[in-house]
């Protein structure tokens, strides 16, 4: 289903595009705007972004695929992004992953049937001194333990 940007979004995009000497440079910002407005980057959203930026849908797809933060499938209401890199590994990220995988019955890349939680192990979040850490949507959760992780899931379930 074709999607279209709100008029305000198009206006916001034009302000951003004016910051660069070439319009194509506004492709990453345009994808961010699309993700904000539509929740994720569907093929239809890619077409809308291509229209906005003035490049081909293929070029948009190539870029959207390259960057992990553009969601190519609809994420859950709470997107759990657990760091699995070295400092977090040393401080127990495997245990955190296990809690999520068991409690929510999720494998990496999956979403719960009710659409509430999605789960994705990610690489270093620059929170290494407060490892293990995780982002839930945009928010950092640091110094996690198996207990605090369990508790957080319970809290988010109720919200």
């Amino acid at each position: 289903m074709a999607v279209t940007f709100k008029t305000e979004t198009i206006k916001e995009f034009e302000t951003i595009a004016a910051r660069y000497p070439v319009r194509r440079a506004a492709l990453l910002p345009a994808l961010w705007l699309a993700q904000k407005e539509f929740g994720w980057i569907s093929t239809d959203a890619m077409v809308a972004v291509a229209d906005l930026v003035g490049c081909s849908p293929m070029q948009v797809m190539e870029v959207a695929e390259f960057y992990t933060m553009y969601q190519k499938q609809k994420p859950g209401k709470y997107h759990l992004q657990v760091c699995q890199t070295i400092s977090c590994l040393l401080s127990g990220s495997e245990e955190i992953k296990k809690v999520i995988e068991k409690k929510l019955n999720l494998k990496p890349g999956e979403t719960t049937p009710d659409g509430k939680f999605s789960y994705q192990p990610v690489e270093c979040l620059a929170g290494c001194h407060k490892a293990p850490c995780m982002q839930v949507n945009d928010d950092y959760h640091e110094n996690l333990t198996a207990e605090s992780m369990e508790k957080l899931i319970e809290e988010l379930r109720k919200k």
């Binding site: 070439v22 990453l28 190539e62 933060m69 553009y70 690489e123």
Partner: peptide, 24 residues
């Protein structure tokens, strides 16, 4: 300019490509 999750964009010319709206 907000990046979008790709370690290689920290490499300076990967970063420039990304700034220009391309794969990093």
């Amino acid at each position: 300019h907000r990046g979008a999750g790709a370690y290689i964009c920290g490499e300076e010319t990967g970063l420039l490509e990304s700034l220009e709206g391309k794969k990093g």
